[in-house]
Amino acid sequence: MAEPRVMDIKDQPGFRSIAVICLLVLYIPVLILMIFSFNSGSLVTHWEGVTLKWYGSAFLNEEFHSAAKNTLIISVTATIVSTICATLAAIGMTRVKPWRGLAAAFMVINLPLMVPEIITAVATLSFFALIAGVFGLNFGIGNLILAHTVFCIPFAYMPIRARLEDMDLTLEYAAADLYATPWNAFKRITLPLLVPGIMSGAALAFIVSFDDFTITQLVAGPGQTTLPLYIWNQIRRPMTPEINAISTILLLVSILFVSVSFLIARRRAK
């Protein structure tokens, strides 16, 4: 005897297949790109056999070295500066009585998320051209670091602020109750509790800086090639699987940092 089928009220017909299709569509092209980085043939499309030589030639490539170095200098500096600024701002905007201009300050922090990247790119380019023209100021690679810091701040800010808002205030009050100075209460209670939020924010800031193409391409001066720019330069030449190898490295860095940020945030949720 067949059991009477119990209707699952949450089910909607066909939704499962669409979800699976979406996942396949999102992953198959990227997986193919990664697989071809191990192709021993020198064409990016025809499979000939397994090899690691393209990773080897990428690591021995001078241009790749300097692009990787520039990328790391820019994204590490931008991550550190933006995470510090975002942490301070999150404290200054949650652990206070609502002040006049708080809403406006919140909008300014989130501005880089609302303006399309291409507009930020040409605006930043115009800005640096102007200060170079009028004041003769050129910070070199510092231009890119400053531009990256601006759009990294809101990404670092979001998880830190979320963490501060979720935090149990009674511990901070208890510290104050036990005669901790505000600075001690912050250092011994608030900051340790805030660390997961800060790490999660820093991971996101690092990814967006590491991966940025649009703003970097327009603002970068000669000799300031980053990894995404290096890939772009390679696309315009006859391509070898070396480009797949470098792309795979970039993807793996993103996956690593997203997973780290994600796991930290999940642990908080539990």
Partner: peptide, 24 residues
Amino acid sequence: RNRLLSLPALIIIGVFGVLPLIII
């Protein structure tokens, strides 16, 4: 004092994010 903590972020975005928009 706490609200002053948001100043560094606001100054950086103000100078290198908002000002460029005004310039264009």
